[in-house]
Design a binder for these strands. Structure first.
Lengths: 342, 342
DNA sequence: CTGTTAGCGCATTCAC
DNA sequence: GTGAATGCGCTAACAG
């Protein structure tokens, strides 16, 4: 098992054993370990020591039954790679306070049956609440009508307005990106983005367009919807460059699309950002890290989503549910693809 | 909360409530729901129906206490992005059988204190076992000497030979990659890889060198250790091309390094794979997806590691622990960077 | 200050 | 067939 030395058999010690070892009664031992009531310091010390010696770890299962709260939450994800889930989990862990709340992570894999299966297991384990993380930003079906614990939807909102959801404000993301391009003097901006069936694509485009309108501008050419791939970034960028109207900036729907764009610009000896600036969305570190120049990108603040989801779950536990969709504001990270760097 | 319709208050139903609703005693209800002993079909049906109506979900906490096994395992990860953890979790979920076993995922964040904290929480929740996922392949300290449940180390092995570990066979990975290059007719192979303090770098290099030796070959030039970045891939590739000895293949320590290499080769109008073949390690989909040509890479089989870890944990639960390090064989994925594609 | 008792929700003996 | 009784590990009221 765990130890190589012939350590004392790691049989789980019970409070009873501790009490016996310390020569006190069950309840005294309990009080001593829980800093309860009046227990003489000597006794307390003796109990503590006994517990230490026996490697006593209180049984949280029992405590959960007694308290009616388990101190656990379920996180149901549908995101295979963990691209969103892990950062969100991190944020949630932070908000919960490490060790206070433990998280059951289960992967629904986009399969409703599987999700139901996991849901049942979570309820059976008496989680205090559930966070559902979607795989895309589109609204998703509510998890179940009769769930006995609060549910918070993260990243992908629930279809049902009565549910509690936290999402990235993609419209705002679009605005932020466009405002930045305008602020750095760009006026002829093309937009290449992903699949139009993703609200992430349409929302960002709408936000950007609105921000441009505020500056008396509009996109040059149509919004070029395609796929979230580098290949599409390359293809669409070539089309943009070959179009009659010149551009001085390309806003890309994702870092991967932007990589494709940079590739083609480099190939055609277009200087970035001097001739054409490039900005994108996601700020996905591994994608960003290697680009030349480094990529200005709008960060989606997954950690913040996780933290807010945890907070909203807490609030719901206290009966203070806040139905509706909360939007987290993304954050622009400026790098060399829009502003020349030292 | 969860439901928008005025669904019946989702107060958790207890077995007692079901029994009452069905007009039977507690134990009869229990037997009926657990397909136990002799209960008249009519009674059983009546109980079932009552349970359904009340949305009864058995309390697994109680069952865990009674059975002495909780049906949960802890997964302690140190991998911030979930790059390894999530695929490993997936594999483990598969091996456990969805819903049978629930997984507590906690993030140690490379912080021993934090890890201990989580460990304590897991033990308190009476997990049946623990899987520890490292952030790099280097051996890591054993989690604790006196842990009362089996522990399996995944990805990064434990320092302690008495522990149970499952890792990728990086030496084999190196061999596989080199064998492939040799099999496709390459004889002058350079190797660019990451930080030499990572065993992943040194093991792969050693494996590749051994395979080359079997073919009467050796690397052209020194193994170029650096960092796991595209920038290093670019820099080192330039150095390789500028060196006096010509090469016909570059083996890269990671997909990111390979991206950097492809970049420079493309820039210098070197044809891949015609003039120089490129192969790498990790087979990380998002990194691979956009390259031109697509990248031949050795897949690290994280799912398999997760599955094996789960199996080993099961075995240990049955008292059949298998101390030592088990190595999972990686798998070559051939693409256009080594073999011209249709 | 310390010990005794009841009971959390359920499965599992046993009697009836 | 069915139901009342014991107990899992622990804490919260009570007594002493």
């Amino acid at each position: 098992m765990a130890s190589s030395d012939g350590a004392p058999a790691p049989a789980k010690a019970r409070l009873r054993d501790v009490a016996q070892e310390a020569g006190v009664s069950l309840s005294t031992a309990s009080k001593a370990l829980n800093d309860k009531a009046e227990v003489s310091p000597t006794t307390r010390a003796r109990v503590r020591e006994a517990a230490e010696r026996l490697g006593f770890v209180p049984n949280a299962l029992v405590h959960s039954i007694l308290a009616g709260r388990s101190g656990t939450v379920g996180l149901i994800t549908n995101d295979l790679e963990g691209r969103f889930s892990l950062p969100i989990l991190r944020g949630a862990e932070d908000a919960f306070g490490a060790g206070q709340m433990s998280v059951f992570l289960c992967n629904g894999r986009e399969d409703a049956i599987r999700e139901q299966y996991h849901l049942r297991a979570l309820l059976s384990r008496r989680v205090d609440g559930i966070i559902v993380v979607g795989s895309r930003t589109n609204p998703r079906p509510s998890i179940a009508r009769r769930v006995s614990v609060p549910v918070v939807y993260a990243y992908a909102p629930s279809h049902d307005d009565a549910d509690v959801s936290v999402v990235v404000d993609n419209v705002r993301a679009g605005e932020i990106a466009a405002e930045h391009l305008v602020a750095t003097g760009r006026t002829r901006i093309a937009h290449i983005t992903g699949d139009a069936t993703y609200t992430a694509a349409t929302d960002r485009a709408a936000g950007a367009r609105a921000a441009l309108a505020d500056a008396g501008l509009d996109f040059v050419g149509p919004v070029r919807y395609g796929s979230w791939s580098e290949a599409w970034g390359r293809g669409a960028t070539a089309a943009v460059l070959d179009a009659p109207q010149p551009v001085d900036a390309i806003l890309c729907g994702s870092d991967q699309i932007a990589r494709g764009a940079l590739d083609v610009l480099h190939e055609r000896a277009v200087r970035v950002p001097h001739d054409i600036a490039v900005a994108s969305f996601d700020n996905w570190e591994p994608m960003i890290a290697g680009t030349r120049p480094s990529l200005t990108s709008v960060d989606m603040q997954f950690d913040a989503i996780g933290r807010r989801a945890a907070h909203l779950l807490f609030a719901a536990l206290d009966g203070k549910a806040t139905p509706g969709v909360e939007r987290v504001t993304p954050r622009l990270v400026v790098r060399g693809s829009t502003v020349p760097q030292a």
